[in-house]
Design a protein around this nucleic acid. Structure first.
Lengths: 144, 144
DNA sequence: CCTTTTTCCTATATGTTTGCTATGATAACA
DNA sequence: TGTTATCATAGCAAACATATAGGAAAAAGG
């Protein structure tokens, strides 16, 4: 039961974009260096965030990416879902065409639906602003 | 973020074993038929449950499998963990040797640890007896 | 013994996903 | 025209998921 690097890196990019927001566009190259992830891999991930309207892009010189909202207006859930798709733990509880016809007899459907609810609830209860606050705290604790 | 068939089938096997408990050993062949899963695949999954002490096996004629405790004494979490391993959503928050050395700088560790907690909390709050009760309910609702 | 029923062990196959890397086109600006 | 970016797409090795297959070993009944 793992979250792939795409979802994880997307979250880190969003935090990075928020923390280095200066009103302008931030080039992916800078994020790649700070986060220690190759530019080419991030280039493959970020289009999903643009398509989902979570960030805005601008090409050319002085181009880059920018958040479209304030950090407290994003939930971790929507960021991760933009990359991972539905967070359903098993496909058969989703809507058609994946929905399992054997649901009535199945002894575990309810359990899995409950799990899905819990997952979404947690993910959607944390905002990007919360992540930034956590990060600051972590940094402060590091400094002596 | 998916749970594999191994974890899901293991859970269904345990429910099946509990529901058809007659004091004796239940052959895997019967479970396979009832659950509509091939015997050969279940044969590959169940050894993990035996190793973890969740079920007892007996070979030969009239052999099969049997629960080692009462249904209310199992949590869904321990059953699934027996097959899936740790339910950590990302490897880097686990103990050595997977633990990430970059944890202090990382902006998302706390979030992922919190997620892991929520996952385990839910999984461990549901017992095998609960699953059986859910199942009966589902069956009753089906009958008119 | 021999047969049947079962668990147990291990190997193989096949398809999909993950996690990158690589190449180049297109846009914007100086 | 050069530089700095995003954007689009292709390729690829390794791991993982989901089985299938063949046969050994144990237990009990006849």
């Amino acid at each position: 039961m793992k979250i792939s690097t795409k979802g994880r890196y997307a979250l880190r990019m969003m935090v990075d974009l928020a923390e280095h927001d200066n009103g302008g566009y931030i080039p992916l190259k800078d994020i790649a260096e700070r986060q220690d992830i190759t530019l080419k891999y991030l280039e493959q991930i970020i289009p999903q965030l643009t398509k989902s309207g979570l960030v805005r892009s601008y090409r050319g010189n002085n181009g880059g990416y920018q958040l479209t909202r304030r950090p407290e207006e994003y939930t971790a859930g929507e960021i991760i879902r933009a990359l991972e798709g539905s967070l359903a733990p098993i496909a058969c509880i989703e809507d058609e065409p994946n929905r399992c016809p054997r649901q009535k007899e199945c002894s575990t459907v309810k359990f899995w639906k409950g799990f899905w609810d819990v997952v979404n609830e947690y993910m959607d209860s944390v905002t990007l602003a919360d992540l930034i606050a956590d990060h600051q705290e972590g940094q402060d604790a590091g400094a002596v």
